[in-house]
Amino acid sequence: MGGYGDVQMIDENGKRVDGRGPGDLRDITIETDVVPVADGSCRMTWGTNEVIVAVYGPMECHPRKLQRQDRAVLDVAYNMAPFSTTDRMRPGFNRRSREISKVTKDALESVVLLELYPRSKIRISIEVLSAEAGTRCVGLTAASVALADAGVPMTDMVVSVASGKINDVVVCDLNKEEDNYGEADLPMGILPNSGQLVFLQMDGDLSQEEFNQAWQYNMDAAQMIHNFMVDSLKGGEA
């Protein structure tokens, strides 16, 4: 977190720097079938975040030592393209990307019906082309849509969204500027049909009341985002 500052990020009417109210989301678009050579894919823009996810498989799992006799394995790779950030991101090994890949995999393994595909692998590539704030949420949400597009069976899709705190006010879906001056960040991965969670992280400083408010913002936002996801998979049909 960027820590405390004197910068005023919320005006006297409660409006944020980009004109949103505290519980409002940035603009979101979702598109499927964007990587023609993949089995399933999704492009999601969220504010000025842009993420592309491609799914390959289920397919034969190589190398053999990674195979599981009783279920499929997910191979999740989250990566930020070198031109996705203001200062160029050096390609290669990166601890942050490794952690995000892992927690994304843990979240998705909770919903994909892995036991239907023993000895197989499902590969999920999350590529951030443009990063603003909250790329891990965009990646996880887009990965669910890409898995659905690939016909991979799941008990539910995962909707991921974060809320946080700026100028002692709890707000939903921090943008880049807010994230820089933010005092807390609470990303969650929510199953929209049951309200259960499969992904949870937090850093910063929140009182119990603030925490409850952030939690509720995420729950409400998840329902809205889920509607966009359903719309994209149904291609505008009822």
């Binding site: 898995l147 799941m154 149904k234």
Partner: peptide, 14 residues
């Protein structure tokens, strides 16, 4: 086609 549209579902749908 409208009839068919009603039967399109997504993962997790009740």
């Amino acid at each position: 086609d409208r009839g068919r549209a009603q039967s399109l579902v997504v993962p997790g749908q009740d």
